[in-house]
Design a protein around this nucleic acid. Structure first.
Lengths: 224, 224, 224, 224
DNA sequence: GATGAATGAGCGTTCATTCAT
DNA sequence: AATGAATGAACGCTCATTCAT
């Protein structure tokens, strides 16, 4: 039994080594320019060994994208936890803004990571692949938790979060990688303003319906 | 002289044929999976002829991305023009919402186009490459014009537009291509809400609260 | 008649332009790395025009090699003529040494020329191709003339000259181009010594038969 | 352990097969006209296998040139050894003449070898590349050994040998390959005479200092 | 005669994949 | 399980050559 466990361990180590090796090369020179034999060599294995663990480099890419996305959210969550004794008792908006700023900061520090994730993160991969290596939560859960324990209530929670995440991700892409159309420092403040306005829009108030303002315009939606 | 003109014409036709051929193959099976010899063969030319017109397939891609993006915006503009006698006299918000809906509609009808553009449209290409083939304006100009003639004024116009465009583009990508996390019909309404809230956020109000304008601006919806 | 002459002239000019263009490119980057279209473009002609004048680049090469070799010998001859009022009355040995030094000097100044000639100068080309462009003598004639008018007489004149020319050409090749095994300045003196000894060896003396010297070995030196 | 040795052996065989295959094709039709895929096919391998062993065909050429040159000198040395019980006790001049005759004989028997070596043997390759395949001495060592043990002493040994080798190589080239300007049988005797005179020229005699000769030889310069 | 667009064979090179060890 | 030598299809690209204008 123990022997089997050891073998399992070794296999995990090999898979991990390939993952790490591939990540290095992908961020360094792009996926298309990275060959399987390079990944193997960089992981100190023979070319043929690669095929014992992965079908092709795209399978590795998919594993990496989810893992890296999770790591980013996890780091952001940890940052938030450090900052607040009881993160979920505080204002949701503040928390979300904090998370966004933290994530932007991570992207700023490793633009290649941003490139890698942004170019490859399709929602399908994002939401479907269960990560077996790390038995952590899905990255989206951070927001779910936040919203669940929040005093404020929001309509269409999932969708709202989706839009915010996509907005951050896509606007930062060009700005951080190509400094266009503005610098990230200039973008950040206005991006946060935009996020705040979205949050307001989807907030359910008791007495004042958030919808009121919008509402007259959106009366149709109320019936929807 | 006429002869030279004819030759020039033929050359343009060849370039165009390659562009069309490449577009077919790119949307069908992706850029990386498309070889130059396929593009040439599909355009009924010899492989070598390709190189008389383009350096590599990425040059073709860049031409295509800008052209297709422009076509989308151009169609949206035309739609708007048809709908309104004087497009620029009407409410900006309404116009922008119209454009967004129109563009979403175009994406819905040809998801491959969305895939192609979304995966390859970097802001650098988008804003820099002047399109010589079509002597139209740059796609961004549509919004510039709208905002210029608008009664309402906005802070950070360019940045705001950038965020809205990116938001639409990135949220639609997964939704239209993978139907995740929701269907496009479900996304659309909330996406528009989000856009409206962003527009409000960046509006410069004098006396009247921005919100007021918004509601009157949405009267159109009531009739819809 | 005049018109025909003019046409002939134009053709010669074109041929000449191609020759000059090819020479530039051959010395710059080697024959194999030079394409016909480059030669034509460099000569300000269309690619197709090349084929009206030459079969391929190797035909051009052959023309060039003989021409350039001739130019080198011609320059050397002119140098000698300038130096001496009556070149052929002076000592043959001195004249030959002068020519060798002059040629080495030319090679030193344009190593690419040396490379080009040495790599391509087969005796077949050298002695066979009659140069129509320049109606001068064959380069070997310089030595023939020298020897013809000389007071000293030599056995196996042609062969002796052949050996001297080859010796100079081949020893200079590595020395000038790669500075191996010594520098040209170091080689020169000893090369001249070697040439002198060869000349002595083939000299016909009146009283003593040349053969006698050879057999006794060094007796020739004793008389020197 | 034994298995590894076998694999090593197989690899050596493959390298060797490529070398042999390339030699055949190079001598048959020239390097430029030989493609890598031909070399591989001729060696009964797949094209890709070539690149496991050599970078390009020029690397093969360099290996071949040094090896073939070495083989020639080695054969000559063996011939000399057979002829003389103690080769180094005999007269140097005689030995060198023997070597030259032996080498000329080899060239006569395989003119393609001469062509191949003469066209590609740059001194750099010649003197620098240590041949690992054959653990023999560098080809030049033959002469070094001869001169080292000789009773006669020579000035500028290396340079003298260089000139002799180049003289033989370059004069034989046209003569053997194109029978110009004379037949090899006619050249041989006079070539040997020339070599003898060079050897004499560089010999250091006891009583008369070599320099003396040189200076008298250079009296011409004083008048220049 | 002069052009240069078009051709397509053929090159060097890469690399995913296989398989005997 | 792990290896890495061997494969050969497929790639991007070049370029001599042709030929309609």
């Amino acid at each position: 039994m123990i022997a089997v466990g050891k073998i399992e361990d070794k296999k995990k180590q090999k898979k991990e080594a390939l993952l790490v090796s591939a990540m290095e090369l992908f961020t360094e020179k792009g996926i298309e320019e990275t060959s399987i034999s390079e990944i193997a060599k960089n992981a100190k294995m023979a070319k043929g060994t690669f095929y014992l663990y992965y079908k092709d480099k795209y399978e590795i890419r998919d594993h990496l994208v989810t893992r890296k996305a999770n790591e980013i959210f996890e780091k952001a969550r940890e940052g938030l936890a450090k900052k607040l004794a009881d993160p979920y008792s505080c204002d949701v908006e503040e928390c979300i803004i904090y998370l966004v700023e933290n994530i932007i900061c991570q992207f700023k520090e490793s633009p290649f990571l941003l490139k890698f994730i942004a170019k490859n993160l399709s929602w399908g991969i994002f939401s479907n692949i269960r990560i077996r290596d790390l038995d952590n939560k899905n990255c989206m859960d951070i927001f779910d938790d936040l919203l669940m324990f929040s005093k404020k209530q929001y309509r269409q929670k999932e969708l709202m979060i989706y839009m915010i995440v996509e907005l951050v991700n896509s606007t930062c892409y060009n700005v951080i990688l190509y400094h266009m159309p503005v610098e990230i420092e200039k973008l950040k403040d206005d991006l946060i303003l935009a996020i705040q306005s979205i949050l307001k829009q989807f907030e359910c108030t008791e007495r004042y319906n958030a919808q009121v303002h919008v509402s007259s315009g959106l009366s149709r939606r109320e019936s929807a």
